[in-house]
């Protein structure tokens, strides 16, 4: 048990952020736009070096519980971005400006982890007719601006059911 602990601590000190390492290797290969052993090796060196050098900026690891659900969430958001684009384009082209009902919403948050709240705010900005504008000082409410929303309560419910519940399952 002790030996195992020491081993994981060793791994942690050399690879403080394994996910970030994988991501950096992937970005390096994408940036070179060709896959070869040399590129992969250089990518691994950079991927180990950068997290080590910047470890003091990121004291905590993001805690992802369920990777399958994260992939599902990603696909749902991509689909919503496409519908959001079409919806907003229709509003811009055909809606009368005076008939738009822009509104401010106050969404109470059940999420507590900063990375989950960041993801939720980003998702809200990218999806149908909503932009996240501010977080309350205690981090428990999100201020959202809607382009055209006749029913504010339904919009809050939609954000909570569609995105927050999924993020809850992924992160907390």
């Amino acid at each position: 048990m002790m030996a195992h602990d020491a081993q994981t601590r060793q791994a942690r000190s050399w690879l403080p952020h394994p996910l970030m390492t994988v991501l950096l290797i992937l970005i390096w290969i994408l940036l070179q736009n060709s896959f070869s052993l040399g590129n992969l090796l250089l990518g691994v060196v950079l991927g180990v070096l950068f997290p080590l050098m910047t470890a003091s900026f990121w004291p905590d690891r993001p805690h992802i519980r369920n990777y399958g659900k994260a992939v599902v969430y990603f696909l749902v958001v991509i689909g919503d971005i496409v519908t959001a684009n079409i919806q907003v384009a229709r509003l811009i082209l055909f809606a009368r400006v005076s008939s738009l009902q822009p509104r401010w919403l106050c969404v109470p948050l059940a999420l507590t982890r900063p990375e989950a709240i960041t993801l939720l705010a980003g998702t809200v900005t990218m999806t149908p007719g909503t932009v996240s504008c501010d977080l309350s000082a205690d981090g428990r409410h999100l201020l959202v601006h809607c382009l055209d929303e006749p029913d504010p309560e339904a919009a809050v419910r939609r954000i909570k059911m569609r995105y927050e519940a999924r993020l809850m399952e992924i992160f907390e």
């Binding site: 919403l105 106050c106 501010d134 977080l135 000082a137 409410h141």
Partner: peptide, 24 residues
């Protein structure tokens, strides 16, 4: 949006959260 809130709006024009106000 934050810069807009800071320069144009007052806290009273926005929906007020329970607990602390908006961080801007």
């Amino acid at each position: 949006a934050k810069a807009y809130m800071h320069s144009r709006l007052k806290a009273g024009e926005l929906p007020r959260p329970d607990g602390k106000g908006w961080s801007t």
